[in-house]
């Protein structure tokens, strides 16, 4: 029995003894803590409108911005995370070619949330779909359920993450709509980085917002609308 072990036991013993009292007082103090933000409101529905006519084939600026913002490696191996990707599509019958970014569509009825056994996949009141990595056990059922293949699994240990964007081995992750920026009044990195302003971000519920007005006046579609998930991301010119 070494000296340090004995001391450690003692330390543990006192800690356990104090715990019961401590938790109660902790909860009280917590509720009166200062400096909290309001929190996500269900009056808001964050969304994006992507104008495929403005999206240039070969341009990858939104992807690069996302990788920088969220600390992704930018690798494109099958085991690398890709929160946003450019898809080049070509109409087989007409030959018309288009390019567009694809990411988590932040559905109103997200299948990933339905299937998650631990409620780790969740939708915030303002419509942002997130993975609560404190709860994610890494079963990958959400990746099987997502129609947009929007999610990635972290296959390796992560280092030097952005302090605003936690990412860790063994959990699933996807586009957060840059929630850490939104909560301080900013907008997603991809939307900011697009040189042609092809990605409009805003509150779909606010009739005065640019996005709501545009969705009201121009034709836009949701991808895989047949599944009736009502995604918050819409595409124009498809």
């Amino acid at each position: 029995m070494s000296e340090i072990d004995i001391q450690r036991r003692q330390f543990l013993k006192t800690s356990v003894g104090a715990a019961a009292v401590a938790i109660a007082s902790g909860m009280m103090l917590y509720s009166v803590a200062q400096g909290k933000s309001e929190g996500a409101s269900s009056k808001v529905r964050w969304g994006m409108l992507i104008d495929t006519n403005q999206c240039k084939p070969g341009c990858n600026d939104c992807v690069t911005a996302c990788n920088n913002e969220n600390g992704l490696s930018g690798g494109t191996l099958p085991t690398d995370s890709q929160w946003i990707r450019k898809i080049e599509i070509k109409d087989i019958s007409s030959g018309r070619e288009l390019s567009l970014p694809m990411m988590c569509q932040h559905c109103e009825h997200p299948p990933c949330v339905d299937v998650c056994p631990t409620n780790a996949s969740m939708k915030r009141a303002d419509g942002i779909v997130l993975v609560d990595k404190h709860r994610c056990i890494g079963c990958r059922y959400c990746m099987m359920a997502c129609p947009y293949k929007a999610r990635s699994f972290v296959h390796e240990a992560q280092h030097d993450q952005n302090p605003d964007v936690p990412r860790g081995k063994g959990t699933v992750e996807s586009c957060t709509l840059c929630v850490h920026r939104i909560d301080v009044g900013g907008k997603p990195a991809c939307s900011e980085a697009c040189p042609n302003k092809a990605i409009i971000f805003g509150d779909l519920n606010d009739p005065n917002s640019e996005i709501a007005q545009k969705v009201h006046s121009v034709a836009s579609v949701q991808i895989r609308a047949d599944l009736r998930l009502n995604p918050g991301v819409r595409y124009q010119g498809l």
Binding site: G35, K36, S37, G39, A40, R124, A125, L130, D132
Partner: peptide
């Protein structure tokens, strides 16, 4: 994370 209430 779940409610967006950020206590800085």
């Amino acid at each position: 994370l779940r409610r967006g209430i950020r206590d800085e």
